[in-house]
């Protein structure tokens, strides 16, 4: 019979099937679902995070591990209907109006998700009012804006203005990113932070969440 410790190892190995199998077996044997999550699955992704920092594991491996952890968490959650699973914070993220580029945004989105954030990804070409509505609906604490084109960068400011108009600006931190975006531009439009890459974006969100 596999143990909770095996679950941790399977998350590190990103073996989705083994995680599912073991989680199901432990649950069937009467194991506490919250204990499975907190002592089996999450230590796995934490270890992956450590190995990533040390340069032993890379992002694709981290993402596969996150998927494996999720598969286990989903099974465990079925047994604890109604109990809130704590998250680090809620982030509303999207590529601003007029821009279809989403590789960088998706990467940030996936890495935030893997780091325990509740991520609401609005996709691409997102108008300012949609960001505002999502912040209200999901009670987000962070708004992430992405743009790859110099011509769509001004749309980032429009989102900040719209948040101000809706009296939401004080409730959320706005972080921006994208190839042509700079710290100077973040300062210029009054964003709370700028991240030059996905790993820094996650660090930044953890810091300000």
């Amino acid at each position: 019979m596999a143990s909770i410790r095996d679950l941790t190892e399977y998350v590190i190995q990103a073996d989705i099937e083994k995680v599912k199998e073991t989680t199901a077996a432990l649950l069937a044997a009467g194991e506490d679902p919250l204990r499975l999550i907190n002592e089996g699955l999450i230590p796995g992704i934490n270890e992956v995070g450590e190995r990533f920092k040390e340069g032993i594991m890379f992002v694709p491996e981290m993402m596969m591990s996150a998927q494996a952890m999720k598969a286990g968490v989903d099974l465990a959650k079925e047994k604890i209907e109604g109990v809130d699973i704590p998250t680090v914070g809620t982030v509303v993220i999207g590529t601003v109006a007029g821009d279809l580029h989403d590789i960088g945004k998706n990467l940030v989105s996936m890495m935030l998700d893997s780091s325990g954030f509740n991520v609401v990804d609005l996709g691409v070409d997102v108008p300012a009012d949609k960001f505002v509505a999502a912040v209200k609906e999901h009670k987000a604490s962070i708004v992430g804006l992405s743009a790859l084109l110099t011509t769509t960068m001004p749309a980032m400011k429009e989102v900040i203005d719209a948040l101000k108009e809706s009296n939401l600006r004080d409730q959320v931190k706005v972080v921006i990113g994208g190839a042509p975006v700079t710290q100077a531009y973040a300062d210029e439009i009054g964003a709370d932070g700028y991240a030059p890459d996905a790993a820094i974006a996650v660090e930044l969100c953890k810091k300000i969440a």
Binding site: G55, F58, V59, P60, L107, D197, A198, A199
Partner: peptide, 10 residues
Amino acid sequence: GSPLDMRTMV
């Protein structure tokens, strides 16, 4: 092409 370096995401 400019491959993503999977360590730095650059």
